[in-house]
Computed example of a mutant assay.
Amino acid sequence: MDSKKEQLLALIRDNPFIGQQDLAERLGLSRSAVAGHIASLTRERRLLGRAYVLPQRAPIVCIGGSNLDRKLRTLAPLQMGTSNPVSQRETPGGVARNVAENLARLGLPVHLLSAVGDDPAGRELLAHAARLGIATSGSLQAADAATGSYTAVLDADGAMLLALAQMALTERLTPDFLRLTSAQRASASLTVIDLNLPADSVAQLISEAAADTRPLVVVAVSVPKMARLPQDLSGVHCLLLNEGELAALCGGKPLSNPSALRRAHRQLRERGLQQLVVTQGAAGVLYSDGDALLALPAPSVPVLDVTGAGDAFSAGVCASLYQDPLDLALACRRGLALSALTLQTEATVHPDLGPELLQSIH
């Protein structure tokens, strides 16, 4: 990496109003060389616009589901067709909302655009976001529908046995909703969407991103909802999914070996996708490096509860891409570290995250 360019970026961080001539004198460069470095940093989204607005000053906009998570942990082996004793815990949930909370706890500016009911659960979700510093202006609060819910049945070891999602409200995040929230979305340095969104909204956001320079990250939520992605993925900077979701996206056949995974990756590259991350549970992740798929192992940690670990991984990746959209390997390392922490708590989002976590992972 060019050391002069990094020095220039550091000077701008210290004084965003610094002029090009001052930069040139401090760095021992010509003014044209400084202009070249600034143009390069702007293309990389490490600077935004003529006023040297740093990406750290613009929010990550998360669009998608918010709901109440109910976690039921069995106290004995599950028996179908009869009553089972369980313990219960309720926490805020929803993929986009979970990603937003992780990002906020990491110290990043976040704006969440979602839909909740005008009921106790919905009001608490909005209040919880406000306490974390997450902006929610523009989010839909429906008077005629209940806030969504996600119920996970876990075994005694914290592994998921069954999950039930009631996410009908996210169907109201239509292109008309996107039009009404265009002002909130215009300020985004990075946009993150989940596939709870209707297919026409997903297509619109991808089309907008293809015509823009701001990165768009798409987070899968389930195999059935992979059908919400359009054929043209040229506006997607990074797609995060698991092997089952990748198989559904690429024809439906199981991806039973590395060559099948590579073929699926090539297929998505041909559809315009820039970066791909495939999660493999305890085995780690695969991530794209040009035409290649590289592997990273997951840290081995004791598992208390799997709920939220995937969203934590997505948040770690997004937080890192917000700082450097080109370093996907670092983003995956940070995502794995955040996921490992979340696996060790019963909370959907680890309550003790802080800005220092990202900087500690290189």
Rank of each mutant, 00 (worst) to 15 (best):
A188D: 09
G117W: 00
L296S: 10
S300I: 10
L326W: 09
I18K: 05
C250T: 15
P92G: 10
C238M: 03
D118M: 06
R70A: 07
Q166T: 08
A331Y: 00
A165R: 02
L112T: 09
R70N: 02
T170A: 13
V285F: 01
A76S: 14
I193N: 00
M226F: 06
A104E: 04
A309Q: 04
R185P: 02
D289H: 12
T342F: 05
R43D: 15
V202M: 03
V99K: 01
M167L: 13
L75N: 07
S222V: 10
G117I: 02
S320M: 08
T345V: 14
Q79E: 13
G252W: 08
K71P: 00
P258W: 04
T213Y: 05
L353A: 06
S256R: 13
G244I: 11
G284C: 00
L268W: 00
I38V: 15
E44T: 07
A292P: 00
P85H: 10
L169N: 06
Q56C: 05
G19V: 07
H128A: 13
D200A: 15
G49R: 11
Q7D: 13
L286T: 00
E346P: 12
P297T: 13
H111P: 02
A199L: 12
V34F: 09
G36Q: 14
T279Y: 01
A227S: 15
V306N: 02
V110E: 04
G308P: 04
D155G: 10
L132A: 13
L8F: 07
A186V: 07
K71H: 03
M226N: 04
C318R: 01
V221P: 02
S320N: 07
A282Y: 01
Q79I: 10
P325V: 04
G138M: 09
Q275G: 00
L126V: 11
A331S: 06
K5E: 14
A33Y: 05
S360P: 03
T181G: 05
L338R: 03
L268P: 00
S114P: 03
Q88V: 14
L261Y: 01
N257I: 00
L125D: 03
A146L: 12
G107H: 04
T74K: 01
H37G: 07
L293D: 01
C332N: 06
A115I: 08
P120N: 04
A58C: 14
R13L: 10
Q7P: 00
A292R: 11
G244L: 15
G64Y: 06
V86W: 03
L27C: 13
L48S: 12
H128P: 01
